[in-house]
Design a protein around this nucleic acid. Structure first.
Lengths: 201, 201
DNA sequence: ATCAAATCGTGACCGGGGTCATGTTTTCAA
DNA sequence: TTGAAAACATGACCCCGGTCACGATTTGAT
C-alpha cells in the first residue's frame, strides 16, 4: 500500500524543506536573523537540528533560497507587467519601476537578505540572490540599440552593468534609510542620469 | 625608573594592537580568513586569546581596521597625486585612476575585505571600509559645476553617488575576476559613460 | 615609598553553527 | 513478500567566536 505516485520520499522532502523555510522566515521576522538559532528553526518545523543541514548547507543559505524564490517571482512579474507596448527604452524604465514597486512591499525581507544573506562579491560580481537586473537589462538594451534609441557604439553589457550598479546601490540605500521615500522615483532619477549620456543625442 | 614619557601603558597598547594586526594579516594571507582562528592570531602575537577582543570588537573588525588604514592612505596619496593643475573633471578622472592603480597592487587584500570584512549595506549605504569615493567626488563635482564643466542643474550628491556605485561595482568585479585586466581602463570607460550625460552638452 | 583605583591580560567558559556515526525508514529488485 | 541497499533524520559532538570574573600591572596622589 505504499503510495507509489511520485515516491513518498520525494514529497516528504519537498514538504520538509518548505516547513523549514517557512519556520525560518517567521522566526527571522520575529526575532531577527542573529537572534534565531538553527535549533529553534528545526524545532518549530518539528524536526531535529541536524536535519536542517540536509536541506540547506548553511544557516544563511535559507535566506538566499528565500531571496531567489521571491525575487525571482517578482522579477518575472515585473517583466510581464512591463512588457506592454512602447519603446524598448520605455520597457526598461517600466521594468525597473515594476521591480521597485514590488520590492517596496517587502522591504524588511530584502533588507534582511542584504544584511545577512549575501556577500559583497556575490551581489556585485556574481549574482547569488537574483537581485541583478543585468540579464534583463542587457536584452532590452540590445533591443533599444537596434531601434536606435540607444547609442549602438557602446557595449550593451557594459551599459547593463552600469545600470545594475546604480539599481543595486539605490535599492540597498533605500532599504537602509530610516526615512522612507519612493524607491521608484529615485531609480528613475538615476537611470535618467545614465540615459542622457547613453541616448543618441 | 618607570618610563614617564608618554605612559608605559599607552605605548604598550599601541604596540600590541600593531602586533595583532600584523599577525592577523600574515595569517589571513597564508591560510585565508576562515582558516585562521583568533587563537592562532593571538599566539602568533605572543598574547592570549581574550586580549584580542580588547583591541578589536570582532574578528572581522581587524579586516576593516586594515582596510580603512590602508585604503585611507591610498586615498590620500591618490588625492594629492591627482591634485595637479587642470580641470576639475580632469582631477576627478585622475583621482579614480590613481586610486585604481594603487589598489591594483593589493588585490588580495582588497578582495579579502570584500569577501569577509564588509557587509553589503556597509559598503553601499554606510561606508565602513573607507572605499567610497563619494565624499571626494562630491567636492570635485561641485567644483566642476562651478566651472561649468558639469551640468549645474543636477544634484551633486546624486552624481557622486552614481559615480560611487560604478566605481565600487567595477572594483569588486575586478577583484573577483579570474582574468586580470586593467582596472583603470574599465573605470575610465564607466565614468565616461556617466560623463557624456553629465557634461553640459 | 605607599596604596587605592583604574586599566588591562588571561583563559575558563558559553552558545551556536556545522559534522558525523548511528539507527530508522523507504525503495527496488527478486 | 522479503531483504539488501540507498536515503535520510537524529542528536551527541567538535570547533570557534565572543564573554567575563579574576588577578596582575600601572598610575597618580599623598
Amino acid at each position: 500500500m505504499t503510495q507509489q505516485i511520485n515516491g513518498k520520499r520525494e514529497t516528504a522532502k519537498y514538504e520538509r524543506r518548505e516547513r523549514l523555510y517557512e519556520a525560518a522566515l517567521a522566526l527571522f521576522r520575529a526575532q531577527g536573523y542573529e537572534g534565531t538559532t538553527v535549533d529553534q528553526i528545526t524545532r518549530q518545523a518539528g524536526l531535529a537540528k541536524g536535519t536542517f543541514f540536509n536541506y540547506f548547507p548553511t544557516k544563511d543559505a535559507v535566506l538566499r533560497y528565500l531571496g531567489t524564490r521571491e525575487i525571482g517571482r517578482l522579477g518575472m512579474m515585473a517583466m510581464s507587467t512591463s512588457n506592454g507596448f512602447g519603446s524598448s527604452l520605455g520597457k526598461l524604465k517600466r521594468l525597473l519601476g515594476a521591480l521597485a514597486s514590488s520590492l517596496e512591499k517587502d522591504r524588511d525581507l530584502v533588507s534582511l537578505i542584504f544584511r545577512s544573506g549575501i556577500s559583497v562579491p556575490d551581489l556585485l560580481a556574481g549574482d547569488a540572490g537574483g537581485f541583478s537586473v543585468q540579464p534583463m537589462a542587457s536584452l532590452l538594451i540590445r533591443q533599444a540599440q537596434r531601434t536606435g534609441e540607444i547609442n549602438a557604439q557602446l557595449e550593451p553589457d557594459m551599459l547593463a552593468a552600469a545600470l545594475d550598479a546604480l539599481y543595486l546601490q539605490q535599492l540597498v540605500r533605500w532599504c537602509e534609510s530610516p526615512k522612507s521615500y519612493s524607491l521608484e522615483e529615485r531609480l528613475t532619477g538615476m537611470v535618467d542620469l545614465l540615459l542622457l549620456g547613453i541616448t543618441t543625442q
